[in-house]
Design a protein around this nucleic acid. Structure first.
Lengths: 213, 213
DNA sequence: TAGATTGTTAATCGATTAACAATC
DNA sequence: TAGATTGTTAATCGATTAACAATC
C-alpha cells in the first residue's frame, strides 16, 4: 500500500471521495464508473482514476468500482478505523462547539479529555467529559497515552500549552490558533484551521466580483 | 490593479502575508526584504516577490518593502476595508461560536442578523444580536440588502435555506455544511469549511507516521 | 464476442524556484 | 559609487488532463 509518497493534493481529496461514496452507499448504489463519480464530485474521470491508482487497482475494467469496497479502502487509507486518543484544550466558544459537534469516532479519534484555564468552569461538563484544569494536562496525557490535541485557545497561550503537550508525548495537533507550531516543533504533525483567513478569502472574492460589475 | 486573473494559490496566501505583516507592524518593524519575509513565512524569496508582483511593484530595489505600505496594500487587495453585510444561519454550537468569536469587522464583514429555526431560542441574544426566526430571513435580507450568509446549519436544511437566501439577493456563502451550493447555484461565491475533512487528513498523517515506525 | 471502462503512459498546464539585469 | 534587493524572465517541478492499449 505504501508505494511512493502520495501527494498532499491527493490526500486532501480523499475525504471528499469518502463522503460521496458514503452517500452512494446509503442510496444503495453498488457500483460506479470513474466518469460518473467524477461528475458527482465535479472533477474529471482522469483525476479519479489517477487518484485511486495511487493506492492500487480498486476497479474492474469494463465494470467500474464497487462502491462499498472503494469506500472501505479509502476508510483504511485514511485510517478512520483508528481511535486516536485526543484531548481538547480550551473550552471557549470554538472548543465547546468542536467538542459537542464533531463525530470524532467516525473521523479516527476518541476525545477523552477537555481542559481549560478558567477556574470558574472547571468540573462542569461538555457531553460526558468534565472540564479539567489545564495545569494537569501533562500528567493526564502521559498516563492516558494521548496522541493528539485540538487547540482551541488564544494564540498567546498556545506556545506554552504545546510545549507541555509535546513533552508529554503528544505530537499531533489540530490547530485553531495562529501560533506556528512547526516553527518550534518541526517534527509535529499539524493541521491548521485558519477561519479568519477563509473569511478574508471570501471577502476577496466578493470584492473582486463587485469590481467587475 | 486588475491586470490578469490572479491565481487561487496566490489569493490563499494573501491572508498569511497580511497576518505576518500586521505582526511586524506591531513590533515596529518598518521595512523588510523578500528574503526575510520569506524566512518568517517559511517560503522562498522568489515566491514572495512573484506573489506581490501580481498586484504591482510595492517594493524598492536595494531597500525592500515598507511594512505599513505593504500591509495596507494587501488590506486593499483583500478588500478588508469593506463591511459586507452578512447574516448567520444556525445558532447551534458552531454558529454561536462563530458569531461570538470572529472579529468580523477586521475581516471585511458586518454581522447584522442571526437566524435559527428553534422556537425555544428565538429572541435570546448572542452578543448584541437577537436570534430571529429563519422563516423571516428572506424579507430581512431583502430589506437590509444582505450580501453574505454564514451557514452553520445541518446539511439537510441547507438547500432550502440557500434557495431562500439566494432569491433574496444573497449570493455569497461561508459554508460549514457539506451541501454543495455550487451544484445548484453555479454563480454563487462560496467558501467551504469542511472541518470533518480536515480531521480525516490529520488522521491520515498520524496513521502514515505510525506505519513508518 | 463486443462494449465498457479501467490502469497507465504521454501531453499539457500551472505553480514554484532560480537567475539576473535593472535600479535604488 | 558599491551593495543590496527588487521586478521579471527563464527553468524546473508537480499536478491535471488526455489518450489508448489492456482486459473484464
Amino acid at each position: 500500500m505504501n508505494k511512493e509518497k502520495i501527494s498532499k493534493s491527493v490526500i486532501r481529496r480523499l475525504p471528499r471521495y469518502y463522503r460521496f461514496l458514503s452517500e452512494l452507499e446509503t442510496n444503495n448504489i453498488d457500483r460506479i464508473s470513474s466518469g460518473k463519480l467524477a461528475e458527482i464530485m465535479r472533477t474529471t474521470a482522469s483525476q479519479v482514476r489517477q487518484d485511486l491508482n495511487c493506492f492500487g487497482g480498486f476497479g474492474h475494467q469494463g465494470y467500474g468500482y464497487s462502491v462499498p469496497k472503494l469506500k472501505s479502502e479509502i476508510e483504511n487509507i485514511l485510517g478512520l478505523n483508528n481511535r486516536f486518543k485526543a484531548v481538547l484544550i480550551g473550552a471557549g466558544h470554538i472548543g465547546t462547539a468542536i467538542a459537542a459537534h464533531m463525530k470524532f469516532e467516525a473521523l479516527g479519534f476518541n476525545l477523552v479529555g477537555i481542559f481549560d484555564n478558567n477556574r470558574d468552569i472547571l468540573g462542569s461538563k461538555i457531553g460526558f467529559l468534565p472540564i479539567r484544569d489545564v495545569e494537569t494536562v501533562g500528567d493526564f496525557c502521559r498516563s492516558e497515552n494521548i496522541q493528539a490535541a485540538f487547540l482551541c485557545i488564544p494564540r498567546a497561550s498556545a506556545k506554552g500549552v504545546v510545549e507541555k503537550l509535546y513533552n508529554a508525548g503528544v505530537k499531533s495537533f489540530w490547530n485553531f490558533t495562529h501560533y506556528h507550531i512547526q516553527g518550534d516543533f518541526p517534527d509535529a504533525i499539524v493541521e491548521n484551521v485558519h477561519l479568519g483567513d477563509m473569511m478574508m478569502t471570501l471577502c476577496y472574492s466578493m470584492n473582486e466580483k463587485e469590481e467587475k460589475v
